[in-house]
Design a protein around this nucleic acid. Structure first.
Length: 349
DNA sequence: AAACCGGGGTA
DNA sequence: TACCCAGGTTT
């Protein structure tokens, strides 16, 4: 029962009955018939799924694949069009690397994703996890995927109490030891599905788990407490000011943020720096009768909380801004903004 | 090795 | 409101 081949067979039998439908996925039945998914679609979905839930990704994936059906189409896209389509999904470096990677696949690989794990790893935005996911799911090569789901499943299956990230090499070794030579692509998706639907962070459904018998943590009663994690440090709060200027024709004064750093390459409102402690000095991006809006914008990023004052002004038709540029109603919609900037827009409506 | 990157869901 | 989740890149 604990034999490696039996373990994978048991999980694959469960997956054959319970595989979740996803727009980028080929069913286990179709895969048994020899159909493999489009590597471009697998890659696109895996980039979007980094740090992001399936429910959120689905709509974005459909829009991207519909608008850019092949990697060559994406490689030829305008940078600003891709960034606007990505708005709201977060971690915007992913979108910049998405384009870089598409262009590298066209330039260096003749427009076809390589199957080889090492070649995938050299592409922008593709790390160990994504390289293993693409080579296993799209090409059925036996590479072990180790995402947060698999880390949790392995920690529980083997009752590993070492906290993350220290435990990562051991969890990887366990994941590799279990990866089968037959149907490795379905196996990779199966173990991640198991973590997402049965072996969940809280309240794992051990009673209906296909690996219930061999699971060491279920026997020890420690499943819900694993994996252990090193404590994280508290988030500081930063303060800042943004300026929402509107011209009589309805155009808004916006700026494109620098390529690197927070919200890199995205549209935003001109404003002050964001700093801890006292609110930093703020200079309007154009002369005008600026008034502070009631309320404030609160937003939390990965490593700090942000509180923004929002200033509003109606600007003259001949306004010459010192920062940013006007975008007409046709050139701009709030959906093009990252969430924190859209919150400021909502406050002004 | 540690810090830097958003947004959504749940309690 | 507070807390949880989670790969890749940069420094």
């Amino acid at each position: 029962m604990r034999d490696k081949d039996n373990m994978s067979v048991i999980l694959l039998e469960w997956y054959d009955r319970h595989a979740r439908e996803m727009p980028w996925r080929v069913s286990p039945q179709a895969r048994k018939g020899g159909t493999l998914p489009d590597p471009y679609a697998v890659w696109m979905s895996e980039i979007m799924l980094q740090q992001t839930t399936v429910a959120t990704v689905k709509d974005y994936f459909i829009r991207f694949i519909t608008r850019w059906p092949t990697v060559a189409d994406l490689a030829a896209a305008e940078d600003a069009a891709v960034m606007a389509e990505w708005a709201g999904l977060g971690y915007y470096a992913r979108a910049r690397n998405l384009l870089k990677c598409a262009r590298a696949v066209v330039a260096d690989h003749g427009g076809a994703f390589p199957a080889d794990h090492a070649a995938l790893l050299k592409l922008p935005g593709i790390g160990p996890y994504t390289a293993a996911a693409v080579s296993s799911i799209a090409f059925d090569l036996p590479h072990a995927v180790l995402d947060g789901n698999v880390e949790r499943v392995m920690a529980r299956l083997h009752d590993i109490h070492t906290p993350l990230p220290t435990a990562k090499p051991e969890l990887m070794a366990r994941a590799e030891a279990l990866t089968p030579a037959t149907r490795p692509g379905d196996y990779a998706q199966a173990v991640m599905d198991l973590g997402a639907t049965i072996c969940t962070p809280r309240n794992p459904a051990c009673g209906i788990c296909p690996w219930r018998d061999p699971c060491a943590a279920r026997v020890a009663g420690t499943a819900a407490d694993l994996p252990r994690k090193l404590p994280k440090k508290a988030k500081p709060t930063r303060y800042g000011t943004v300026y929402l200027g509107r011209r009589a024709d309805g155009a808004w004064l916006l700026e494109t943020r620098p390529e690197r750093g927070l919200l890199g390459g995205m549209l935003g409102w001109p404003g002050s720096e964001w700093a801890e402690g006292d609110a930093p000095e703020a200079t309007p991006p154009a002369p005008g009768d600026w008034t502070e809006l009631p309320g404030e914008v609160r937003h939390t990023f990965t490593h700090f909380h942000l509180i923004l004052r929002v200033m509003r002004a109606d600007l003259p038709a001949d306004c010459t801004p010192t920062r940013g540029s006007f975008r007409t109603r046709a050139e701009f919609g709030p959906a093009d903004l990252p969430t924190v900037m859209r919150k400021a827009f909502d406050l002004a409506q």
